[in-house]
Design a protein around this nucleic acid. Structure first.
Lengths: 210, 210
DNA sequence: AACTCATTGACCGGGGTGGTCTACGATGTT
DNA sequence: AACATCGTAGACCACCCCGGTCAATGAGTT
């Protein structure tokens, strides 16, 4: 399987240190350019150990993808309530969950956000499937069971969807830029949510029926 | 100055081939990782010539930045009409200019879009100044001389600005993804502009006063 | 023929690569 | 006390690519 029992027997803390070091290195450099030397250095372990725990660089990478997909799926996407037909409300709640999950798993999210842009992504079948499941779930969240009659009827609903999505995306990117470098666990999120809600209210005011 | 007369005496075509090869390599890899070997290979010149034209890698990089800043400034930003107080109309025209300029100078724009994200950007003073002028101009385009009374008065105007900007940004990114790999000079842009206008109309309908 | 100069690519020392292997100390077993 | 096992470290390997140099070449000019 490419990963040894030895690694899984390590105490939680050390496992985490190694995984985070690797996630960060791959996220910042992509697969080819990521350096195993850098990983062991920032994980604080000897070079030999990395190849004792994982058979080689590629297996480590695949393990990280599997690990990241699990977290994104079970700690983020599956937590989003897909039953609320009010699109903006759904997005609002999704934003909260995403933020919380991101703060708790920053390295994982950072990594996940980059590996799907990799040029050549020939994954083993099980990973490819997991990947597609995740995509399907993402699609459901955006499109499934949305009450389209809530939107104003003098404009194309699909285009309004896009604008709302772009606005959320834009806010998220802006926020990331603003918070860059800060410790995500010690931030006071109240003013952020307040501001976020104001944006959501404007979207409702402008795009929902009167 | 880091660049020899020899280079400037080259016929236009060859200069362009070299500059484009270099722009592409730096854009794709950043300064540190860009390979001069790759540049000469894809420019179709001998290794020695690159260091005959430009004294070294760093000088070449600075020359490219200077070159790119000029094009962005004089072929893009300065072409935008800053007098129209109608924000969305201004954005609409700016979008057209940007697209046209991008199609004609794809490598330059691609390069310009990445070098401002470089980690360590300690540029020589003249370049730094040019950079700031460009920023100032960009700021003017977005904020200067906009008639704020055209917007609905039941929502914060600055937030509406943001949403409009995010929408434009989103559309642009989407478009780039859709057109990726295609030859930008042979595309029929009519349906694209039509779609773009529809989005702009929705923004007007939703955010302007009745 | 002598000189100038644009051009090439083999070559240089240096540094980083993924991966291996030996040596070692701790722990447990006989 | 002798031996075996196992988690650990890091020196080491062959390889590859780097930015930059330089001797050789050939075309043009005087």
């Amino acid at each position: 399987m490419g990963i040894t029992q030895t690694f899984k027997n390590l105490d939680e803390n050390k496992q985490q240190r190694i995984l985070n070091a690797a996630l960060k290195e791959f996220a910042e450099n992509g697969y080819e350019r990521a350096s195993t030397n850098q990983i062991v250095k920032s994980a604080g372990i000897g070079k030999g150990m990395l190849f004792y725990y994982f058979t080689n660089k590629k297996e480590l990478y695949h393990y990280l993808i599997d690990y990241a997909l699990d977290i994104v799926m079970y700690k983020y996407l599956n937590m989003i309530d897909i039953d609320d037909p009010d699109m903006i409300e759904r997005m609002k709640k999704a934003g909260q969950i995403k933020m919380k999950c991101f703060a708790e798993n920053a390295e994982v999210f950072y990594f996940a956000g980059t590996f799907l842009l990799e040029d050549e992504l020939d994954l083993p079948l099980p990973l490819k499937r997991k990947f597609e499941e995740l995509y399907a779930r993402g699609h459901s969240i955006i499109y499934e069971n949305i009450d389209k009659t809530m939107f104003r009827d003098d404009a194309d609903v699909d285009k309004i969807f896009q604008i709302i999505r772009w606005s959320m995306e834009g806010y998220e990117n802006d926020l990331k830029k603003r918070l860059h470098g800060q410790n995500l666990t010690t931030i006071n999120y109240d003013p952020i949510w307040e501001e976020f809600y104001e944006y959501m209210d404007i979207l409702k005011l402008s795009f929902y029926r009167k």
